[in-house]
Design a protein around this nucleic acid. Structure first.
Lengths: 349, 349
DNA sequence: TACTTCTCTTTGAACGTTCAAACCCACGGA
DNA sequence: TCCGTGGGTTTGAACGTTCAAAGAGAAGTA
């Protein structure tokens, strides 16, 4: 049990009042140089640290940022959010905040957790991940004008910026991947994606389609939509590679699907018709640059996750420490950051 | 800004005093049935939630568990701690605790963070990961009799249980792997490990050596120690496979090394002398059952991470909610839990 | 001298909860 | 009738901090 040092101890030790100590720590400019030094020495000597709970009681600020930790579904894509979380913890610490974790199985459960946390721990802000069409979490928080930032843009909103967000430009990523394949001489470049309706998935598909069209290739018939499993990717890839006019390269919406595609490509079975197997191997590009992609040698798009996390914290501190005008005030759009992914080229493409 | 409901609001609404409301929530048995019901109705109706900061001020308990989130080094093994963290968050929530994150680059920095957190947020307990010989973090916490549990046993301590811990039996894991290979007819089973001195690494090596000896095979010369990189694993595996009397199977201390070993095994180059390449493929078994192992098809040892996390929380609540006798009291050893890993068999072995 | 201004510091109160002690009241026994 | 007992409830104080306002001096002005 560490001996508790309070602000009163420091005050007594430095021969000043409580409030002067508080001022030295919070608004040093109002304290005379010599007094300040004396107080700081006392702080140092006694090892004083401000008690958050007491401060929170008075100021209503907890210096806590709450965010969700997700169960890793297939274990491949989970690593993306974990890396983000690590960056978030580091950036938050630098800004004087700590990260509080919670779990929730779906949006409704997450909102219940919001209410729970707000009543009990009163986090200053939330960081949401995995935004999607008709996201009820953001509207709930907006209704209560709780500060928050999403990692993932608000999909399907006409305005575009109903709240602060940070995201990685998925379309630019798949566009870069497609361009890379075009440069390598490929023309029939397929796309393995998720079913339409997912903001992230549609965005990434669009980057591929746009780039193909710009190169004079009609993307029609060259894409397949499937759920995000390795086996699904394998099956969908087979379809594209066995069609009458088969694809010679595949851009995938995730590393899971890319891994599946690679199984199809590398399997010595009857996947690709004999007449095509003589040619160069089918190229495969994934998304997220997960450890699996690295291990297997899949070319993939790397998201700047540490940077994304840092941006989230920057936006948050601006929201929290900045002017406290009502966040719904018209005129200024909410700040947002769109980062660029980078292509990591490996054996697969 | 959610309207704040305080205990006084509930009291007024139910026509009782503050303290009675507090009693209903904390020690319901002292309140008359009818009063209790009335208060609970008021709580429900107003959506009251106890304010942690205020409670903490009075009781000194924050209901916060602090733990470290690590940067994923090579991205492969990182996933283990991430899965553990997820389980910890869930189990903690069930027990009424929240998880607070921090980062630290080394033990010294972590201790500094301990001091920081204890002064500011006053977490009720810490969960430490990655214990090792001469771990200064545990002694620091013990000196201050701060409650904590480690995931990883206290290595190199004569007593064995200077504090509560949870761990997975690595030696039993490698023993099972070795037995599995013996059953498959292998005799010359090599081990790819970390340099001696690492508790975890030595333990896992011991399980392999012990099992080989029990089967009448001398492990001498069959093991290699290297740092935990894929390339390191590849090189070390090559040594074992190119020796005069080459190994026909490899048990690896981690999936990173196993992946490296697999590269050597599968590479069609001059890795293995020609006379041996005709035989059955060299078997490889990893440790941790990471997503990479799954993706590549490496047989590996799976740690029950959710269970380990749950055990940590169980031990912690026992420490925190249980009797508060000085934890150093002699007589009763500290509680600990040793879980068994399970072998997940895949193509590689 | 007396009054104003300015800089720096101190004092009281409040945040929302729980502990410790006091209070109230019905009941049973002398 | 009076007192002790005990269940159920209330009251005052305290946790450690910061806000708002008041106070203490010194310096400047009339």
């Amino acid at each position: 049990m560490p001996e508790k040092v309070t602000i009163a101890d420091v005050a007594r030790h430095a021969g000043v009042s409580r409030q002067t100590v508080s001022n030295v720590l919070n608004t040093p400019e109002v304290v005379r140089e010599e007094t300040r030094r004396r107080v700081l020495d006392a702080v140092e000597e006694l090892g004083y640290r401000v008690n958050q709970a007491a401060r929170q009681m008075r100021t209503g600020r907890s210096r806590l940022i709450a965010t969700r930790i997700e169960p890793d579904r297939d274990g491949i894509n989970g690593s993306v959010l974990d890396r983000f979380l690590h960056g978030l913890t580091e950036s938050a610490a630098r800004a004087g905040y700590r990260v509080l974790l919670y779990t929730a199985d779906d949006d409704t459960a997450e909102i219940a957790t919001f209410a729970d946390l707000l009543g009990a721990y009163e986090p200053d802000a939330f960081v949401l991940t995995g935004t999607h069409h008709g996201d009820i979490r953001t509207s709930w928080l907006l209704d209560r004008s709780m500060p928050f930032v999403t990692f993932g843009r608000p999909w399907g909103v006409p305005d575009g910026t109903p709240h602060a967000w940070v995201d990685v430009d998925g379309a630019a990523g798949t566009a870069a991947a497609t361009r890379h394949l075009l440069d390598a001489g490929h023309r029939r470049i397929g796309f393995l994606g998720w079913p339409a309706g997912s903001g992230v998935g549609d965005d990434r598909r669009e980057g591929w389609a746009r780039t193909l069209r710009a190169a004079g290739v009609d993307p029609a018939g060259l894409d397949r939509a499937t759920s995000d499993g390795v086996d699904d990717g394998e099956a969908a890839a087979r379809e594209l590679l066995e069609s009458g006019d088969p694809a010679t390269a595949l851009v995938c919406v995730s590393d899971s699907l890319a891994l599946g595609a690679l199984h199809t490509v590398r399997s010595p079975g009857a996947a690709t018709p004999a007449e095509h197997r003589a040619g160069p191997p089918v190229a495969v590009i994934g998304f997220d640059d997960t450890p699996v992609a690295k291990a297997v040698g899949i070319t993939s798009l790397s998201q700047p996750l540490a940077e994304a996390a840092a941006s989230c914290v920057t936006l948050l501190t601006r929201l929290l420490d900045g002017d406290s005008r009502p966040s719904g005030s018209s005129g200024d759009p909410h700040p947002h950051v769109l980062l660029q992914p980078s292509l990591v080229v490996r054996r697969s493409g």
